[in-house]
């Protein structure tokens, strides 16, 4: 079954530039796929439309039965609760501890206190940071911070995890650690879409690769490597 279905998805900014021009895409449940493409190819805009940070100008995108493009501002939270999002710059709250950063995503659902604690610790254990729950983000390394961000993204057990260049700020070894965590999460059934520039990761994982160029799906390999882009 398809988790994501994009049909003729187009985004033209007010400035007149068309970032995404008619993307058709189907992503199945449980897939791990990379979205690659040069800077300015439109992959970031595409990712943003997945979580309704940008509204499509035309076409539609349906995730898990929700027509994301049609969501009104006041209802954006409905899709955000179904997907986890990880960013290059982690986007953690500096003044909250590791535990609080993750717990926050559960609390907003109005869960009971012990349920919040259980879920939070479970997610932090999965990313291997259970021993650092009382630290503040700036006391952690980049890799650890990203793992906190991943824990926050998966704490509510989303069907889909969107990663927008999650390893962009990390060294190769740490990047691989992060990807291993993502693979673990994927093996538990979560669909993962990862936008990246990291050639090594893409080549090593041998997963589906979607190449975006000039706002269109240029290539789509079920078991691809980064090198195809060059060819």
């Amino acid at each position: 079954m398809d988790l994501i279905r994009a049909r003729n998805l187009t985004k033209t900014y007010k400035t007149g530039t068309t970032a995404v021009a008619g993307v058709n895409l189907k992503i199945k449940k449980g897939e791990f796929c990379f979205i690659i493409g040069a800077s300015g190819s439109g992959k970031s805009t595409l990712m943003k439309m997945f979580y309704r940070e940008e509204k499509p100008t035309s076409g539609e995108i349906i995730i898990g039965g929700i027509n994301v493009g049609k969501l009104r501002n006041g209802n954006v939270y409905k899709i955000r609760r179904k997907i986890g999002i990880v960013f290059q710059d982690y986007k953690l709250l500096e003044k909250l501890t590791v535990f609080e950063n993750v717990a926050f995503a559960v609390e907003i659902l109005g869960e009971k206190k012990n349920e919040v604690r259980r879920k939070t610790l479970e997610a932090l254990e999965l990313v291997g940071l259970k021993h650092k729950i009382k630290s503040l983000p700036n006391q952690l390394s980049g890799g650890e911070q990203q793992r906190v961000a991943i824990a926050r993204a998966i704490v509510n057990g989303p069907k889909l995890l969107l990663c927008d260049e999650p390893t962009g700020n990390l060294d190769p070894d740490t990047s691989m650690e992060i990807v291993k965590v993502l693979e673990d999460i994927n093996s538990l059934g979560t669909t993962i879409i990862m936008a990246t520039h990291d050639r090594e990761i893409v080549n090593r994982l041998q997963r589906r690769v979607i190449l975006i160029d000039e706002g269109k799906v240029a290539k789509d390999f079920t078991k691809g490597t980064y090198d195809h882009e060059v060819i």
Binding site: G74, R80, I85, K91, F104, A105, I108
Partner: peptide, 9 residues
């Protein structure tokens, strides 16, 4: 960030 993790307005 609150919006990103799905907090309602």
């Amino acid at each position: 960030i609150m919006r990103l993790v799905g907090a309602s307005n």
